[in-house]
């Protein structure tokens, strides 16, 4: 563990980064879990770039592999194969010790603000945990830093001696955000970070993330099942289904004119808060197949309203469907 003493000390430095290069370049990432019942194909051959200072949304239903993907990027889960380049550094080649040092630059915010905060620790210690683990600052420096972080996320410094149960759900999620920001990371994975919140509180947290992104030039992977939320927050959206990214492009065009039949179905299934809305709904039959036994060829073909015999042959290659936009479908 590096023993650094000042707040300004730097984390592992980039080797060959230029600012034009994406902060993260993920190539052919695959994660399979071996279980007694067979192999779970959680993430299958996913390639994705995440540009510096951008928020990329990863959207999908339960069982799509989005959470596994997010954790694999931080190597909280070890990938089966593929490459993760972060600021020019190949993460899959790092030793456990090097990866620990690297996590200073990569943080995660979890869904459940109750179970992800240690109930026995005061807020001050929860937020300072990473600083302490990385040996950053004196005790007093850390305390000042926590005070500033709490103010930044909309809490107040005098709440430092309180315990997590004394806070509401929205406030706990702010604590989780302050903790993730403490190490001044370049990259944050937010995994369903607003899903458990009531809608009026969800809006507070979404706006906080938007503000922090501008202020701190954060790069973020925002994982969610709610397309409207992802559309609000993100620059780009990648849609996952059964371990595969099936469409990827700039957020607004993707949501306004979805190309892939699954993206279209997903969007048309979202109930709109407008009783006068008239729309054609593509109701999908059945539910997502088991990742223990995904369909051959295109993983969506068993539920696809536009399926062709050739869809069983191979997972479709990416087809350009607009500026900086691709979809994996042979029938567009």
């Amino acid at each position: 563990m590096p023993s650094e003493t000042t707040l300004e000390a730097s984390a592992p430095s980039p080797q060959s980064a230029t600012t034009a290069e994406p902060l993260l370049r993920i190539c052919n990432l695959t994660k399979r879990f071996q279980t007694p019942r067979g192999t779970i194909h959680a993430v299958e051959d996913v390639s994705l770039d995440i540009a510096r200072g951008s928020i990329t949304g990863l959207v999908g239903e339960s069982g799509s592999g989005k959470t596994t993907f997010g954790r694999t990027l931080l190597r909280l889960i070890q990938p089966t194969s593929g490459s993760i380049r972060f600021d020019g550094i190949e993460l899959t080649a790092l030793s456990a010790r090097e990866m620990t040092a690297m996590r200073r630059r990569m943080q995660i915010i979890f869904q459940d603000p109750v179970s992800s905060l240690n109930p026995r620790l005061k807020v001050e210690h929860i937020v300072a945990e990473g600083l302490r683990a990385h040996g950053i600052g004196t005790r007093r420096d850390r305390r000042d830093r926590v005070a500033a972080l709490l103010e930044e996320v909309g809490l107040s410094a005098d709440q430092m001696p309180r315990y997590p149960h004394e806070f509401s759900g929205g406030q706990r999620q702010r604590i989780g955000i302050a903790r993730a920001l403490a190490l001044e990371p370049d990259f944050i994975v937010a995994d369903e970070s607003v899903s458990a919140l009531d809608v009026s509180i969800q809006a507070q947290i979404l706006n906080l993330l938007l503000d922090l992104r501008v202020k701190r030039r954060l790069t973020m992977l925002f994982i969610a099942h709610d397309l409207s939320v992802v559309d609000y927050l993100c620059d780009r959206i990648a849609v996952m289904y059964l371990g595969r990214v099936i469409e990827n492009g700039p957020a607004r065009p993707l949501v306004r004119q979805p190309a892939h039949p699954y993206t279209r179905a997903l969007l048309s299934a979202v109930p709109q808060p407008d009783p006068a809305a008239t729309r054609q709904r593509d109701v999908l039959e059945g539910s997502i197949p088991s990742p223990l036994d995904p369909p051959s060829g295109c993983v969506f073909r068993t539920r696809c309203p536009r399926v062709l015999p050739a869809c069983a042959d191979a997972f479709p290659p990416p087809v350009p469907v607009g500026p900086e936009r691709i979809a994996h479908c042979i029938n567009l």
């Binding site: 406030q171 809608v199 009026s200 809006a203 939320v229 607004r252 808060p273």
Partner: peptide
Amino acid sequence: RGLLASIPRTDRPEGERLQAIPGAV
């Protein structure tokens, strides 16, 4: 009114910010 204004909608105008309700129940 606040509840309706705090819902993200895919048909909202570009760049319009959600109106969150301050505080908690």
